[in-house]
Nucleic acid binder design. Sequence first.
DNA 1: TTTCCACCGGAAAATGAGGTCC
DNA 2: GGACCTCATTTTCCGGTGGAAA
Length: 409
Amino acid sequence: MPYKNGTNGILDEIFDQALRGPRIFRNKSVLFHDHIPQRLLFREEQVIRLGHLFSSILRNQRSSNLFIYGKPGTGKTAVTRLVLNKLIEKSMNTQQRVRASYINCRMAGTEYRVAAALARDVDLKVPFTGLAVKEVFERFKIKVISEKLPLVVVLDEVDALVSRYGDDLLYGLTRMNDRTLTIDVMVVGISNDVRFKEYLDPRVLSSLGEEEMVFKPYTPEEMEKILMDRIPEAFVDGVVLYEAVALCSAISGSEHGDARKALDLLRVAGELAERIGSIHVEARHVHEAQEHIDQNRVVEVIRSLPLHSKLVLIAALQTLSTGLGRVKSMHIYSKYAAFAKDFAGRTLSTRRFYGLIKELNVLGILDRRIENFGRRGGRVTTVGLSIPAREIRSALMEDAVVGEIFQSK
DNA sequence: TTTCCACCGGAAAATGAGGTCC
DNA sequence: GGACCTCATTTTCCGGTGGAAA
């Protein structure tokens, strides 16, 4: 579509349409993951139970540690944060001060960063790096003991921490309730992985698992009611058609009852409807939203890949363009090695190359299989594409270095 | 049944850049 | 300024793999 006055003209038309076009959203933010609603449908039981557990802390008594598990999008984080926020609010309105720390271990990334986040939540200054984890934890412990304030620590996606760094930090936290230390620390561990408990040291398991909570997936009917509950706050009255809500519930219901997926679909469907000037959010917008989310994910993933992963992808594209459906990974490696030498100045080892192929497979871009060709051929990795070559190529073209390779070939 | 191929992949070590502490 | 720390990435080492061929 040609625009007058170049970029300025494009922006004028976009902004004018936003001002003139029909209004779809009232408050879009309630459809984002980080929004914590005032009430959580179908989770009243969990809210009440967690409230009872947290209330001991408010009475300055030691509370049982808690382990929460359930699949993604079942409300674990929302319930915990809702009750935690209420606890903090209550403690501020009364004389009973409570310290609370919520840390997402996957977002934090490393054991050091989790320890540093704990320390910062009790108002300690901790550098980004340079100290031993034990040192940071020791400073945190000294501060907590000196303050004598009850503390609630919520470690979300705790499996990401334990699977990579072991359970030393968890052990240290659960040991803080030792009778010789006169402080009350409640540890709440949240995990998507039920088997996570198998990796824990029995001492940590017996302490962390004093109480357990399981969050079951939402049924499609429950999901529909949750969406209906958010719609009056999120959208202008009468904008969202029932067919769109039913479809969002059905799609997310088929993916283990993930409420986050349902909210994403509804939000993106609303954005698409708004963009084309529609006065309603319809089922067709939900279908488009699903495609849009999948496509955007691929483009974003490829765009954010490091240079050598992009070079491996180009090598795979070029090797596969010979017409074969699948190729041996070593054929891709020789092509990659030539690109890497010319455009990156060095070539990664085959071991690292296998790692990159595996990562691209996990990301859903390459299809990696291990096949056996017997005594002559041995056991090799063969590679195909998981998504159309043109999609990969167009995402890769955005990179200056990689675009140059395409132009030079 | 054994041998052999051509990698595969786990574990540990190395690297280099960021930092703190004394 | 030197010892020591984290962290992400990469390399090195070496035992493992599984099915066709011998």
